[in-house]
Write a protein that binds this DNA or RNA. Sequence first.
DNA 1: GCCAACGTTGGC
DNA 2: GCCAACGTTGGC
Length: 157
Amino acid sequence: MNKNNSMNYWLIKSEPSTYSIDHLKKDKKTAWTGVRNYQARNTMRDLMQVGDLILFYHSTANPSGVAGIAKVASKPYADPTQFDKNSEYYDAKATKERPIWILIDVSFEKTFKNILALEEIKKHPKLKNMVLTQKGSRLSVQPVKKEEYQTILQMSI
DNA sequence: GCCAACGTTGGC
DNA sequence: GCCAACGTTGGC
């Protein structure tokens, strides 16, 4: 567990055709279901803390980019879809006693006036080392440095 | 639609 | 434990 009380920053990806920032705005809060990657799971389980701020990223979109801000709204708990036989995220190896997939709730914070396109993010010298802009990076839940977060916010105005 | 890069699976 | 094959992600 992360014992340090300072705020951390994150980025989560979603395809807007499946779940966009507008969906989150309408729902106000949602369980971030369906993450089936261990590294992303570990980030949600071990590192994210209630109140941390999250860049909400639209992938496979026109354009792809950061669409707004969300917030960590719960402690980690078992992703209910792993137990649901009718869900595309069902995992036969998971049990209630030993869940495999852990998630957090995310709540809506704000939508950017304009999507901050990946192209713009890649151009900015301060964002060269973001996990997002690394070649081949596919992580759907990833850490963002405070400086990177602040740079993104400034660019979004 | 293409395809590079990545993570996972499973044979050995 | 290695690594080829496969499925997925996600930019373009």
